[in-house]
């Protein structure tokens, strides 16, 4: 299990939520609000590398947040 922390000011809640939905087939993810952070516990499903999975999750959440801040919708 890996713990990830995403700052409220830098990551949007919508992006985190959508990233969790996108990764639900690859990892079991629980989200807690520990202000000012979203604290996520990520456990890989199957034989996936948990470190890589956590990194890809972070990138995905960041990309969605960046797109949302630029005016695009996080989810179409």
């Amino acid at each position: 299990m890996r713990t990830l922390r995403f700052h409220h000011d830098l990551y949007s809640a919508r992006a985190i939520e959508e990233a969790c939905e996108s990764f639900e087939n690859h990892a079991k993810i629980t989200v807690r609000q520990e202000l000012p952070y979203f604290e996520l516990e990520l456990t890989a499903l199957g034989s996936a590398d948990e470190a890589v999975l956590a990194g890809e999750f972070g990138n995905f959440a960041l990309a969605l947040t960046a797109e949302e801040k630029r005016g695009g919708a996080a989810k179409d």
Binding site: H7, D9, L10, Y11, E56, N59, L62, A63, A66
Partner: peptide, 15 residues
Amino acid sequence: ASYVFIDRCFVYLDA
């Protein structure tokens, strides 16, 4: 800048 680098490395932001 972070968006450009997500294909090369894992990027985390913190405040």
